[in-house]
């Protein structure tokens, strides 16, 4: 299987109080075509920064991003814009990732206008198809984001990311702002789309259950570094790194029998986390 996306020794630093803060510290990973690559870690571990580097929304301080054979760091701005039609991104806050003054239809039309020659009736029917694909009726096209629920907005986000038929979707905490009931709807949708279209996902989440459910491969990130990576089942059933174990133990709802009125809870030992 070929690699859709390879990140090679990505480093990203930010200036911070006259010093340098390293948000992503020498991270390399390869994502194979048609698979889901999960990235877990606590907030601030550098997951979103890595995603931005992967899409070149931010230039990495050093390291290379290879997407379908192109070294993205070497492309002209124009070429980079075109490459982005072959990758999609879905962000954490579904309502905030839609322009509050643009109708749903206009939001979905935006990438189509930028990258295809579709116009008029053809454009409208493409928008309807896309909304339909993510489980929204065509009637939603005329609504504004605040008239939709969080889950519906995230469906729009997915429809928009799929508009230019990309092979790779980068999903940055796609369900973190949603209730479990709605999260399940979105996870089902993501899984269906991936299987039907053979898409490749980079799935970022701080929720271990979500990552385990969807991913084939998983990397665990801490303080800008990947501390452990491998096949998803292996990571979750036989974690090698202490930090991975700590995360697994702390995840809520994982005790076989609940701790009713007793001290069966154990506090994880996280040095330096507070």
């Amino acid at each position: 299987m070929t690699n859709v996306l390879s990140l090679e020794k990505i480093v990203k630093t930010f200036p911070h109080h006259k010093r340098v803060f390293t948000a992503v510290d020498d991270v390399s990973l390869r994502i194979k075509e048609g698979t889901v690559y999960g990235l877990v870690g606590e907030s601030g571990s550098g997951k979103s920064t890595l995603a931005r580097c992967a899409m070149q929304l931010m230039r990495p301080t050093s390291g290379r991003t290879i997407f379908e054979g192109d070294d993205l760091g070497k492309l002209t701005p124009r070429a980079l814009r075109n490459v982005r039609s072959r990758m999609g991104m879905v962000l954490q806050n579904p309502v905030a990732s839609l322009n509050p003054r643009m109708t749903i239809g206009a939001s979905v039309a935006e990438p189509l206008r930028a990258h295809t020659t579709l116009k008029g009736q053809a454009l409208q029917s493409k928008i309807e198809d896309l909304l339909d694909e993510v489980g929204l009726g065509a009637g939603h096209a005329h609504r504004l984001p605040h008239q939709l629920s969080g889950g519906q907005c995230q469906r729009v986000g997915i429809a928009r990311a799929l508009a230019t038929s990309p092979r790779l979707l980068i999903l940055d905490e796609p369900t973190s702002a949603l209730d479990v009931s709605v999260q399940a709807q979105i996870l089902n949708l993501l899984q269906d789309l991936q299987q039907q279209k053979g898409l490749t996902y980079l799935l970022i989440s701080h929720d271990l259950d979500v990552v385990r459910y969807l991913s084939d491969e998983v990397a665990v990130m801490k303080s800008g570094k990947i501390v452990e990576s491998g096949a998803a089942e292996r990571i979750f059933t036989d974690p090698q790194h202490d930090y991975t174990r700590t995360l697994l133990e702390a995840a809520p709802g994982h005790k076989a029998s609940p701790a009713v009125g007793s001290h069966t809870l154990s506090a994880p030992n996280t040095q330096g986390s507070n």
Partner: peptide, 13 residues
């Protein structure tokens, strides 16, 4: 804002 980042990610000029 997220929607500006999303627009950049979509390759909007």
């Amino acid at each position: 804002r997220s929607y500006v980042e999303a627009a950049r990610a979509m390759g909007i000029p």
